[in-house]
Structures are given as structure tokens and as C-alpha cells.
Design a protein around this nucleic acid. Structure first.
Lengths: 135, 135
DNA sequence: GCTGAAAACGAACCGCT
DNA sequence: AGCGGTTCGTTTTCAGC
């Protein structure tokens, strides 16, 4: 993990499909050398994978919301956390400090989907919803 | 935008460096045909780019936090939003409904960096911090 | 880091609807 | 025109050294 690895990660972060040759030019290394470093970063668990940035609106997402959840009993927190993470609308689910125990970020096609989710998670605790107006 | 495009996006989301040939096998199309669809999805703005999933902990992130910001005057909201988005620690910055106008997700090396950020954004409003305990 | 083989990509061209 | 298939030349990647 040196400065070159940092730069490689930075470049892949900007464009994960960038060729190792192009990256090599920037860090003054041959393409195979870059490839080997990337492989090592994967094996070390620094690079977890490669993914897409998509325009969710164009894929039918019209409602985005943060839902904080005040868990009923602390004993259900673990269950709630593990379940909620698996919902397809959920983008993030974090345990947080403070009165609310979970902070959920979720994307929905419409308000109806949001309501359905609120009903589903109400079994675990009291939800507090803030709609995202702009990202 | 049909079922095949959906599948292509799904596969690229799982692994953005997947080859078009492999994707083609799954959707029963030739590699160039997949390439053409991907190019079109890029041109239509559905695909915004390709990025990396990294293990932030291994890159030195030890503190993650949601910081909600109650803006002093509504006139400063725009300025605050545009400025805060540019801070390197900031992962997301969303305008939200409710009493707090902004919800900021940021990653820090340590608590000192967090405090520095809190001081910087205090000029725009009153911050409310929740530390992320688990993601 | 280099070299050679295998694979992936992009462009051009053809056929079909 | 739009979409997919094939071929070919170039680039990239991977596995040796």
C-alpha cells in the first residue's frame, strides 16, 4: 500500500473500466505491473469489486428517503438490521448512535412502495422518514 | 430499455469489469451486440460511469458519521449544499425534508477530522451528528 | 519489467425486420 | 432506420520468464 496503489485506486474509482495500460502511463509502470498490483489489492480485500454508477431516476426511481428507525427492544436490533439489509429498495442500512438505532437509505418507484416498506419495518420499531429532495 | 438492458445493467452492477462476451452468453447475444447496448445506455445517461467498491477501513477510515445540518437561514442553503459536496470526506450530501435541511454522510480517518468538519460547516447551520457503529 | 499467447474490444460491413 | 451477427485489426490481459 504505497502512493502508487493510492493513485491506481483513485483512477479506478473514477473509471473502473480504465485499462491497466492507461493507468500504467499515469503511474509510470507497465500494464502487467499495474495488473499485478490490482490483483494484490483484490486479494488483500482493499478492492471489494467493480460496480456501476447509474441514473436511478431513469430506471424508475421517483422517491428516495432516509428512514430512521427507533427499535422497540434492543433485542430485536440484530434481527431488524439483518432483515432490512436484504430488502431490494435498501441502498444502505447503518447502525448509528443516538435515539434512533438504524439509519436506512432506500429508493422507491413511488410513494406506495415507500408506504409498504414503512409498514414492513414497523414491526421492528418506530420509523422516522425524511424525503430526499435533491442529491 | 427492455428486459435485456435490465439484465446487462444488473450484471455490470455486480461486476463492472465483466466482459461483454460473458454478459452476452447470459443474455444470448453476441459480444459486439452487448457492447452496442452498453454504449447506448451510456449515451442515454442511464449508465453514468464505472466505479470501485473499496474497503474504506483498510484505507484508513476509522470514523463514519451522518451529520444533519439545520441551516441558519434558508438563503444559505444553496451555498452550503454546493460547498459541502466538494469536501473530500463527504460521501453523500442530500437535501431532505423536515427540520434539518441537509443530511451529510462523511468518512474520516479519526475524530479530529470529524471535529474539523463540524467546525467548518457550523458557519452554515447547526450540525447534529450520529456516529455509524456498523455498516 | 519483458515477451508471447489468448482474450477482449471497437469498427466496418452484411442481413433481417 | 434499427438491431443483431460476423469478421478483422488493435489493444489488453494473463502466464510464463
Amino acid at each position: 500500500m504505497d502512493a502508487i496503489d493510492d493513485k491506481i485506486i483513485k483512477m479506478l474509482r473514477a473509471n473502473a473500466r480504465e485499462s491497466f495500460a492507461t493507468i500504467g502511463k499515469s503511474v509510470d509502470l507497465s500494464a502487467p505491473a499495474v495488473g499485478k498490483r490490482v490483483k494484490q489489492l483484490e486479494e488483500k480485500g482493499v478492492i471489494l469489486g467493480y460496480s456501476l454508477r447509474v441514473n436511478h431516476e431513469k430506471l424508475g426511481v421517483n422517491v428516495k428517503a432516509y428512514i430512521n428507525l427507533k427499535i422497540h427492544q434492543s433485542s430485536t436490533l440484530r434481527t431488524a438490521y439483518n432483515q432490512i439489509k436484504t430488502f431490494k429498495e435498501v441502498q444502505r442500512c447503518d447502525r448509528i448512535s443516538g435515539e434512533d438505532s438504524l439509519c436506512i437509505l432506500a429508493y422507491f418507484k413511488n410513494n406506495k412502495e415507500l408506504v409498504t416498506m414503512l409498514e414492513r419495518i414497523s414491526q421492528y420499531g418506530v420509523p422516522n422518514t425524511r424525503i430526499i429532495l435533491e442529491s
